[in-house]
């Protein structure tokens, strides 16, 4: 039997040959292998995102997934626990809280919150911590009020550093605290406190202490009596006045000012009526 099968031509067609040569061209090859996929992806993304509605949907979807993750129970803060704050501060802190609990810990900016709480007058320092179990722990260190300071804006409660801890309407609200007045008084609160402590025997009569010229102190008693204290050794001078009071009842008499500024020459100034009375007693007549 004669087989009439024709052997296939091994030669590539003109087109196959050209295509293979084109494919072996480096520029074409890289263009097709990387350029084309990049182009297609960019095109698809561009067409998809070209529509306003789809873009919004896409972003909403992403936002939703993000929210779902952030609102998992393990990230939720259920309640706040404040330690070391009194009623008034607690109220202020509650007012500062951004929203109602429960909320996600991703929404809580603890640093910003801490700065805000520090802005409250009565708070000296605060630490915030999200504890396991979804509790926002707020540890507050309050300022300890030691004195009242009366300035142009009214009466303030200050701590030992002279920083305002609270504002008062009138001085009567805190009768237990001494009153400090005058320029530079706030910066020298411990000194003033020492003087007031030294004036304990006169406690009933002390109205406050005044910083004069940001240099020295005046102790003000009732009946407009003043004890002018020197710049140095003010406590010793005060103790001498107290000793005089206890021995000679100096302050009980009708004296307006006890001037102790010169240590070797204490001086007193009498009131107007006391002066006239003394002249009358002495029988001095002053002609007009």
């Amino acid at each position: 039997m004669q087989q009439m099968t024709r052997r296939a031509d091994p030669a590539p067609s003109r087109w196959a040959y050209k295509v293979q040569r084109l494919w072996l061209t480096p520029v074409f090859r890289t263009g097709l292998r990387t350029g084309l996929p990049v182009l297609v992806v960019a095109l698809v993304a561009g067409i998809y995102l070209g529509n306003e509605q789809r873009r919004a949907d896409l972003f909403a979807g992403i936002e939703g997934i993000k929210r779902d993750f952030q609102e998992r129970p393990e990230f939720m803060v259920q309640m706040m626990s404040v330690d070391g704050a009194n009623e008034k501060t607690l109220k202020a802190i509650h007012e500062l809280m951004p929203a109602n609990f429960p909320l996600s810990s991703f929404d809580l900016n603890l640093g910003e919150l801490r700065d805000k709480i520090r802005g409250i007058d009565a708070v000296k320092d605060v630490t915030l911590q999200i504890r396991s179990g979804g509790v926002l722990q707020v540890n507050v260190t309050e300022r300890i009020p030691v004195a009242l300071w009366r300035g142009p804006e009214g009466v303030e409660v200050i701590d030992a550093e002279g920083v305002r801890a609270d504002k008062l309407g009138t001085r009567i609200e805190r009768p237990d605290l001494p009153l400090i007045v005058g320029e530079g008084a706030k910066q020298n609160v411990p000194e003033a406190l020492e003087l007031i402590a030294a004036a304990a025997p006169l406690k009933e009569r002390v109205r406050g202490i005044v910083r004069v010229s940001n240099r020295r102190w005046d102790l003000v008693l009732d009946r407009d009596q003043r004890i002018l204290l020197p710049e140095d050794d003010a406590i010793r001078a005060l103790e001498r006045v107290i000793a005089l009071e206890q021995a000679k009842e100096l302050l009980t008499r009708d004296v307006a000012v006890v001037d102790m500024r010169l240590a070797d020459r204490p001086t007193i100034r009498m009131t107007e009526t006391a002066h006239k009375e003394l002249l009358r007693v002495r029988g001095v007549k002053i002609e007009d």
Partner: peptide, 8 residues
Amino acid sequence: RAIRTVVQ
């Protein structure tokens, strides 16, 4: 065609 085959 033969040249094409061999070159390819």
